[in-house]
Amino acid sequence: MTINEIFEEEFSNGRDFSFAWRIFLDLFYASTNEKRRELISPAPICLDDRRHLSYCSAGIHKLCREYGLALPEWVTDKSLILDEPYFPGVKTDLLKLVCLVESPPEFKMRNIFTTENVLTRT
């Protein structure tokens, strides 16, 4: 299974990006490095929101660094650097300030600002 297949399946079941991303993370964490490489190698082409594709590339970039995996080529595409700052799910200015400080570098470099535990699943 690939990240694109995960998103396609979840979207066809009426689920949103956030839900599908969490499914991807669960599968990634439960997999071997060989399976992880298969999961991330193709770009999730079914995503029509550039912010979501950028978010995926940032998350996968961070996961590759943490797990010692080679970066898939699509993850380093310069077009995935957003023109405007993106604060997914952030509702207050105070939380924006926290995200500006805490956001992992793989997200900051794409102009995405999150909390430091953005990839944590509990």
Rank of each mutant, 00 (worst) to 15 (best):
I6Y: 01
E9W: 05
I3H: 00
H52A: 13
H61E: 09
I112C: 00
S31Y: 14
P104I: 02
T115H: 12
Y67G: 13
L119C: 05
E9D: 14
Y55R: 06
V101F: 10
D83R: 14
S18A: 14
L97F: 15
K96H: 05
C56W: 06
D83F: 05
R121P: 03
N33T: 07
C99V: 06
Y29N: 03
T92W: 01
E73M: 14
F11Y: 01
R50G: 09
N111L: 09
T76M: 12
K108M: 04
P85N: 06
M109L: 07
L47C: 14
C64E: 04
R65E: 09
D48F: 11
E9I: 09
P72E: 15
N111P: 10
K96Q: 11
T114P: 00
F11I: 01
E116P: 15
L119Q: 04
W74C: 14
M1I: 04
T76Y: 08
D16V: 12
M1Y: 03
I3V: 05
P105T: 13
E38K: 15
L94A: 12
F28T: 00
M1D: 06
E34M: 09
Y67S: 13
I40D: 05
E73A: 11
E84K: 06
C56A: 15
R22L: 04
T122G: 13
C56H: 02
R50P: 14
K96T: 09
F113N: 05
R15D: 01
S103I: 00
R22Q: 11
E9Y: 15
E10K: 15
C99Y: 08
P105W: 07
H61N: 15
M109Y: 06
C46R: 12
S57I: 00
K108L: 01
